[in-house]
Amino acid sequence: MICRTCLRRAAPQRLLFQNAPPRTATFTTSIVLRNAAAAPPAGDAAAAPKITPVIDASAPPAEPKAALSTCEPGTVLKGLNYFKNKTDPVALPDEAYPAWLWECLEVKKKTEAVDANAGDEFSKSRKQRRLAAKRKMQQEAKLLASGNLEALVPKVPLPKQSINLPDGSDGGVEGAIFAADKREELRKALRKERKAKIKESNYLKTM
């Protein structure tokens, strides 16, 4: 007679061995991979025949693959293990990791670029002043090159403008919601200006 618990125990293992390459593709199976130092070569052996035809078929995809990861698949990553009785993890091929992993550092760069726009010409911070001056110089150079005068139009902040806000007269429901959003934007800008003014006056009172 076959023991039920034995069957249960055997079932996931069998699955693991049969579907080894797709399992490595999911991000959640990291613990299983960390366990065995002997397993990765088997996984590589299973994955390698699948990858090589792609490389043979077209030369261009081989290049970005080389650029993505710094360590080759199968490299033992020393010192990355933090489980008590397990060995160090082993690097997988690039395809085994999710796509966002290769872009997660770029997001930070973008936010830094947005901050660079906030350079203030009259800021107390020297860094901010320098940023503003640099931006202005770039702008001037661009203007000189193109001869486009539209960029000369002064940027009036929202709480100082005097044109009509959108009245949603042509857009129906969407137009009305858009107008409401713009009003909210103005409200937020007014509040921000007010807070800055209070902060400034409080600072000046201490002097």
Partner: peptide
Amino acid sequence: PPTQPPTARPADVRKAQLLRSYTSLLRST
């Protein structure tokens, strides 16, 4: 500037900005 046409009363005070916002509210609601 196109976003700051001449006004009858000072445009940068809170009342003027509220007026802009209320006319938009009345027309779009």
